[in-house]
């Protein structure tokens, strides 16, 4: 058994233990922290499986933003799960049969890592062979994401836009007016304030690096948007929601959410003027590669804008709830 297999198996076993602990524990704060651990470990596994972009995103989403949202929810709801009262037999049988069906389905699968598997010989080889000449950027994942399957990514931006609008619709009616907000600023945390001030700049700089380096390495608009938003969320946590709202008001965030989607969708329309199909970026530059490059840059920026704005507005919506998020809950 190779080293790779040992790493693979031990990470999977660790994931299994974490998942089981999540199932069994009833202290919800512990459950949420463990789910964050689960995401982080699966990010490690994803790196091991060569999916660096995915690992980056999973770490930022699962261990980052999801955890923050869940903690905020717990602070607003309750911290312990009550003991289950109904019978667990039926769910167990259903889940067991589903699992059995899936295991049955694995029997005819190509073996793990097989270079001759159908997915390695059809469709994907073209991306690997032609990205350099057709798109001209080294990161194949970005090339496929933003150009070959760029419409999926427009759909993805729309999904995140939907979530942002949905959270606003659900929670907006309950946001208190700014003067009524009681989210405590962490005044007595001098250390926290100083360190936060020091770190926000570098975090935002890192977000920009991730945004514009996505063509060459792991990263891109989505990850950058999350990092940018997290810098903002730290600011809001330490200096208070009120101050954060002063810096970027809620309505401005809402409009930025829309702008990102409009940018992405709008770039797609430009190709109409040149008689090409929707989302053909080649028309944007003097030659195909230049056009594709510019197109990817623009749409990735649209993605980053929408993601960052949605995360900030979602955080505003949760943090602005009528129960304050106080020190004690963190």
């Amino acid at each position: 058994m190779s080293i790779a297999a040992v790493i693979d198996i031990s990470l999977l076993v660790f994931l299994g233990l974490t998942a089981f602990a999540i199932l069994k524990l009833r202290a919800l704060f512990a459950v949420v922290m463990l789910s964050s651990v689960f995401s982080l470990v699966s990010a490690a596994l994803l790196v091991h499986l060569d999916a660096v972009d995915v690992a980056f995103t999973e770490a930022a989403v699962g261990a980052g933003i999801s955890t923050v949202l869940m903690l905020a929810t717990l602070a607003l709801t309750s911290r312990r799960e009550k003991a289950p009262t109904r019978s667990q037999a039926l769910p167990l049988i259903v889940v067991f049969l589903t699992g059995l069906a899936l295991v049955y389905g694995t029997l005819d699968m190509p073996r793990f890592g097989d270079p001759q598997a159908p997915i390695q010989v059809h469709v994907a080889p073209k991306y690997i062979a032609d990205t350099q000449s057709e798109i001209g950027i080294p990161n194949i994942v970005t090339a496929v994401l933003a150009s070959y399957r760029g419409f999926d990514t427009l759909g993805e931006v729309t999904v995140i836009f939907t979530a942002g609008i949905g959270v606003l619709l659900l929670l907006a009616g309950f946001i208190r007016e700014p003067e009524g907000l009681r989210v405590q600023t962490m005044d007595h945390h001098l250390v926290l304030r100083v360190v936060t001030k020091m770190l926000i700049g570098p975090i935002m700089l890192f977000a920009l690096y991730v945004q514009f380096h996505g063509d060459f390495g792991p990263g891109g608009g989505f990850q950058a948007g999350l990092i940018f938003a997290s810098a903002f969320i730290i600011y809001a946590l330490v200096f208070g929601l009120e101050n954060a709202r002063k810096a970027v008001p809620g309505r401005a965030v809402r409009l930025l959410v829309a702008c990102g989607v409009l940018l992405y969708g709008g770039v797609g329309f430009v190709s109409f003027l040149f008689g090409k199909n929707y989302l053909n970026y080649s028309v944007l530059g003097v030659d195909q590669v230049a056009g594709q490059h510019l197109g990817i840059l623009l749409v990735e920026f649209g993605v980053g804008l929408t993601v960052a704005a949605v995360m900030v507005s979602t955080f505003y919506a949760f943090a602005g709830q009528n129960q304050p998020i106080s020190d004690e809950d963190w």
Binding site: T158, I165, R254, L255, V257, A258, L262, G265
Partner: peptide, 9 residues
């Protein structure tokens, strides 16, 4: 799809 973000304005 484009009308959705426009309507936010």
């Amino acid at each position: 799809l484009i009308a959705a973000p426009l309507s936010v304005f």
